[in-house]
């Protein structure tokens, strides 16, 4: 078996192990709590905690009468949410990168604007997500665009900070080396600073990817139209007493959407950056 195949197999087994452990814990909790008659912290009855196999089966039932299976509908919703997040992610990444480059070239720009860039994090950005979408609707922006703007906002800060840190990471002697070659600032940027910054930028991108997904879901909440994950989560939450499995299944799919996005970025990172250069996390 090749090394790559072995790694995939090992990953597959780990995933299976995790699922099995989770099912055991869940069902075990239900069994023991029911037997002992305990109710805290969560009631073990089938309404509140449906059996894991019921949740799994719900994926393959039709979502509505004579409709396509639940899993299809939810995956489509996830894809829609992800698309919105991804566009914003790209924009935010570009802006963040640009800011990093600007700040490394101009100390004045850094002094003037960096405190802002940092302060932007103290405003709970995701907190304005619903407001941005409602506002977008009021000024006739398509909903997907508002959601993308949220993702962009969530992305630009970590990328800017990490780009700056990465651009400054080369040892002073490397800068002296470039100066000894009479390099132009542009050459120093693209031949030394940017390649050195890549591991840092990818770390930020992974964080931003996860944040963009949450931002997209939350942004979809108040408007609640369209077929995105946010609306579905709210809807199944309201239908909880009738069909609790649906909510759990939908949350599961939302989780997988986040993992898929971050996984994509991680895969790119593994391709472009050798293992000896990757930063922890």
């Amino acid at each position: 078996m090749g090394g790559a195949n072995r790694r995939v197999a090992r990953a597959g087994i780990s995933i299976l192990a995790v699922v099995v452990v989770f099912v055991l814990l869940w069902e075990g909790y239900k069994l023991i709590w029911t037997a002992m008659g305990w109710e805290n912290p969560v009631r073990p009855d089938d309404r509140t905690m449906p059996h894991t196999w019921d949740i799994f089966l719900a994926l393959f039932q039709p979502a509505q009468r004579n409709g396509p299976p639940f899993i299809f509908v939810e995956l489509r919703a996830a894809l829609m949410t992800l698309r919105e997040a991804f566009v914003g992610f790209l924009i935010g990444g570009a802006v963040g990168f640009g800011l990093g480059v600007l700040f490394v070239r101009s100390t004045m720009a850094e002094r003037a604007f960096m405190p802002y860039v940092v302060a932007s994090q103290t405003v709970p950005i995701i907190a304005i997500a619903p407001m941005v979408v409602v506002w977008g609707g009021r000024v006739n922006l398509p909903q997907w665009l508002s959601v993308s703007l949220i993702a962009a906002y969530l992305t630009f800060f970590p990328v800017a900070i990490n780009t700056l840190r990465g651009l400054r990471s080369p040892h002073p002697t490397s800068m002296e080396l470039m100066r000894s070659y009479a390099s132009t600032p542009r050459e120093v940027l693209w031949k030394l600073q940017v390649p050195a910054a890549m591991p840092y930028i990818f770390t930020a991108l992974k964080v931003s990817a996860a944040a963009s997904v949450i931002g997209a879901i939350v942004g979809e909440l108040p408007a609640g139209l369209r077929g995105g994950l946010g609306r579905d989560l709210l809807q199944f939450s309201q239908q909880f007493t009738a069909a609790p499995e649906k909510l759990f299944a939908a949350v599961l799919i939302a989780g997988l959407a986040g993992i898929a996005f971050v996984g994509l970025i991680t895969a790119l990172e593994h391709r472009w950056i050798g293992s000896h250069r990757r930063l922890a996390g």
Binding site: S174, Y181, R277
Partner: peptide, 26 residues
């Protein structure tokens, strides 16, 4: 002139040949 420092200061994302080519590129 060419300069050599105490630490080799090679760029770790380039292989050996590409490292030697760095000044030639610039």
């Amino acid at each position: 002139y060419g300069i050599v420092f105490q630490s080799a200061t090679l760029l770790d994302w380039r292989n050996v040949q590409k490292n030697v080519e760095l000044p030639l590129e610039i």
